[in-house]
C-alpha cells in the first residue's frame, strides 16, 4: 500500500512575495474550519464555554485571534476557525456544550482552504478582484465578508490591522476546486508590484495588467 498523505488544494504552490515586502500570499494549510448553526441568543454562552471565544455580536465581524476565531457568516451561522488539527476537539466540545439546543456543527476543513494575503499592497490586490468595498475606511481588522472575488465566491477576513509591521493581513477562504484559480489571479493582481505570475493548472491565461 502506498503511504497515505494529506494534501492541501494548493500543495503545488509555494508562497509568493513581491519585492520589498509590498505584498505576499501563502496558503495556510489544514486550518480547522467548522460551520456552526445556532441561534446566537440561545447558544452564545455554551459556545464561549466550549471554544473560549465569544460569538460575534455584530454582523460581518470576527472574535478571537488569528489562531482560534469565530467568524460571523449569517445571522444564525458562524465559522469556527481552529489551529491545524484542532477541529475535531473543537467540534466535540461544541456538540457537548450545545447538546439539547437546536444546532448543527459541520466540519468543512477540506472543502475550503485559506489563502493569506498580506502586506501594504494587499488591499489593492483584493480591490482588483472584488466589488466589495475593501478600502481601509470600510473594511478593517476584525471584519468578515462573503463576496465574489474574480468569478468565485469566497469569505474575506481581515486578521490584523493596517498599522501592523509588514502591513495588514487578510485571509481568503475559497472552495478547494477554485483555490488554484484564485491563487493565480491573486498572483496576477500582485504582478504590478513584482509578484511572479503563475500558470494555472488548467493552462488558461488571463491578464489584469497589460
Amino acid at each position: 500500500m502506498s503511504e497515505i498523505r494529506r494534501r492541501t488544494p494548493l500543495h503545488t504552490r509555494k508562497p509568493l512575495e513581491a519585492p520589498g515586502g509590498a505584498a505576499r500570499i501563502a496558503e495556510l494549510p489544514f486550518l480547522g474550519k467548522l460551520v456552526l448553526r445556532v441561534d446566537p441568543q440561545a447558544g452564545s454562552k455554551a459556545v464561549e464555554a466550549a471554544t473560549g471565544v465569544p460569538l460575534p455580536a455584530e454582523a460581518c465581524t470576527a472574535t478571537g485571534d488569528a489562531d482560534t476565531a469565530i467568524l460571523w457568516i449569517g445571522p444564525d451561522e458562524f465559522w469556527v476557525i481552529t489551529p491545524r488539527d484542532g477541529e475535531t476537539a473543537a467540534a466535540a466540545a461544541l456538540e457537548q456544550g450545545l447538546a439539547g439546543l437546536h444546532h448543527q456543527v459541520a466540519d468543512i476543513g477540506s472543502y475550503y482552504t485559506a489563502i493569506e494575503i498580506a502586506g501594504p499592497r494587499a488591499r489593492e490586490m483584493l480591490m482588483k478582484l472584488t466589488m466589495l468595498d475593501v478600502d481601509a475606511r470600510a473594511f478593517s481588522a476584525g471584519q468578515v465578508a462573503g463576496s465574489i472575488f474574480a468569478a468565485a465566491q469566497a469569505y474575506l477576513w481581515q486578521v490584523t490591522g493596517d498599522d501592523q509591521p509588514g502591513g495588514p493581513a487578510f485571509r481568503l477562504f475559497v472552495r478547494r476546486s477554485m483555490a488554484d484559480y484564485m491563487w493565480c489571479l491573486l498572483a496576477e493582481a500582485g504582478f504590478e508590484w513584482g509578484m511572479p505570475r503563475q500558470t494555472p493548472v488548467g493552462g488558461e491565461t488571463w491578464r489584469l495588467e497589460r
Binding site: 460581518c60 449569517g74 445571522p75 466589488m131 466589495l132 465578508a145 463576496s147 465574489i148
Partner: peptide
C-alpha cells in the same frame, strides 16, 4: 438587511 450595502453581483 443583515450585512448592509453591497454590490448587486452578490
Amino acid at each position: 438587511p443583515y450585512c448592509g450595502t453591497r454590490d448587486q453581483s452578490e
